[in-house]
Design a protein around this nucleic acid. Structure first.
Lengths: 133, 133
DNA sequence: GTATATTTGCATCATTGTTGCATTTGAAAT
DNA sequence: ATTTCAAATGCAACAATGATGCAAATATAC
């Protein structure tokens, strides 16, 4: 699927910033930070525009955000685009990379009476295959 | 257990800021934000001191931090003090409260070959018992 | 090609978190 | 009880993420 198609499908205007973000995230093996995405787009676009684009794309479930220790923020293509289930995220404490474990579905929990679930986030921290050695 | 005992046990100096934080967090039913803790301590202490105290207490596993959507940060008493297992956190999207589900242990995942786990965080978002009605 | 609603860029501000440095303080030694 | 000194605190300054208001630019429908 191409970036333009994704935008059309969600009835979003085709702006180069949105298109660029989607393309970069689609081709990435890992989740990328704002700066990593900006680099791959040659530094075009204002920071505000980036945030608003991320927000729009998140709201339309085209990308999703992964936050590690509340300062490191990464973005990845959403399940609804890849047609995968809710998945676990892995954060490597050595190389600071974040990876969507698309093949590891999230396990469900039984909440106490009175609580209702809307979403769940699972972040596993450890050492990735590249850093283990 | 009293706050002073906790500090002694970890060979930490007994400063009123640390003692205050531990007491407040111990008596809280939910995880508290920096501001909520400061309010309960009558606004004493500089913001930097707070952060350094939180950091120290976290490093000694006396409290732990829960981050929701990378802007909301809450603190709660750690497992090592309460002698409970790693647990699930619940975030209520209506009242913005965060609660340690001490009775819900975290389920384990089998990672792909080459990956090693050091820690895991599970955050369930939804509506809490008070907000459901 | 034109009209219009949306998006962008810029300026400004808020929040969380960090660092350097001078001052203060806890507690150990006397 | 007093002295001593490493540790903790307060202050100033700074960085990163994020939000908002507004004028200018742009995408799409006509």
């Amino acid at each position: 699927m191409k970036a333009v198609e994704v935008l059309n499908h969600h009835h979003l205007k085709r702006t180069s910033c949105r298109e660029g973000i989607i393309e970069v995230v689609m081709n990435a093996k890992q989740a990328l930070s704002e700066n990593e995405i900006r680099e791959r787009l040659s530094g075009k676009y204002d920071r505000t525009t980036f945030y608003r684009s991320f927000k729009t794309l998140e709201e339309h479930k085209i990308i999703h955000k992964i936050v590690v220790d509340n300062q490191l923020v990464k973005y990845a293509l959403d399940n609804s685009v890849t047609h995968k289930d809710e998945h676990v995220h892995f954060y490597c404490i050595k190389c600071n990379s974040v990876k969507c474990m698309d093949n590891i579905p999230i396990k469900k929990y039984q909440l106490p009476h009175g609580y209702s679930e809307i979403g769940i986030e699972v972040l596993i921290k450890g050492i990735c295959e590249n850093c283990k050695k």
